[in-house]
Nucleic acid binder design. Structure first.
Lengths: 157, 157
DNA sequence: TTGCAATATTTGTAATTGCAATATATTCGC
DNA sequence: GCGAATATATTGCAATTACAAATATTGCAA
């Protein structure tokens, strides 16, 4: 059997890339007064405002309990607000405030720039191919989890 | 300007893929009695035994202070040992023990299987292309950091 | 050679994280 | 329509994490 070469091991490559991007962009975000998880929430809400907490957790890849506390902090800062009362009284929906939206708008250019840097030297086709492949990997792993734990979703649907 | 679509944003795609893989493989690792960070250390040592702690931190994308404590735990469990005394008395090198090596050998098949699952439906060429692109992204971001903080490496060289 | 900046690791410490338990609301079986 | 199982969110809590400070060693320059 061939030797195990970590430097060509996909989980390794994905992880180190993710950590690199996260720590580097985290520095940028600090100047805006938000943490990386907070930015993820803002970006997710920018995509679809008024999401329920569990959906927001799935979209941001943040554990619901962790997210709940992050939302406390963001609410404290006035970036989001929680609302109850739409039909099902169990669900809480999260909404961007005007301040949150303004902040998101300020961050987006940096986020775009950051992606440009990450994709420096990539053609549009290559970038699209990379993204499509990451989505395929994500779905492959998600499918495995659903198969392993068939009843009631293990985590992040 | 075009709207910001998080679902096609590279950092988002990389992060969610990494988190998915990490949580899923973490479950597998628990059965072997190790955590994900510990596995990363074992895999890094399998690649090159006797690395210094700072190099190990760079390779595993774990902060040195965090790594120092992870090594405490791994040493406690008898998987690795620290050695001092090779020339520079400041540096500590980390070495896999026989037990650590045996554990690594047991985990590797699962790790391989896991990558196969993640890459299900990928041709060999596609998989190679994905890995190569992830490396390019990593280098792009690393280059940005070195440029931002030219003196003495901000983090993980 | 002495002193001082740089390097390598560890330790202090506060914040973050995630699992488990809880509280509340809903739905399904009967 | 009642009660058990399910769903949603929050909270308790111990472990993990990361930044900063401390410690130890080295190398260089005066």
């Amino acid at each position: 059997m061939t030797a195990f070469d970590i430097t060509r091991y996909l989980p390794y490559l994905v992880n180190r890339t993710g950590v690199r991007i996260a720590t580097a962009f985290g520095d940028v975000l600090r100047e805006h007064g938000v943490t990386l998880p907070m930015w993820r929430v803002l970006a997710a809400l920018d995509h679809a405002d008024g999401q329920r907490i569990s959906d927001l957790a799935a979209m941001t890849s943040i554990d619901v309990s962790t997210l709940s506390r992050i939302l406390d902090a963001m609410q404290e800062k006035g970036f989001v607000e929680r609302r109850r009362g739409g039909g099902d009284a169990r669900v809480v929906t999260v909404h961007e405030t005007a301040a949150g939206l303004a902040l998101t708008r300020r961050i987006i250019p940096s986020a775009r720039h950051y992606e440009d840097v990450a994709l420096r030297g990539f053609s549009a086709e290559e970038a699209a191919a990379l993204k499509a492949m990451l989505e395929r990997v994500y779905r492959n792993v998600a499918a495995l989890e659903d198969q392993t734990a068939p009843e009631g979703e293990t985590k992040a649907a």
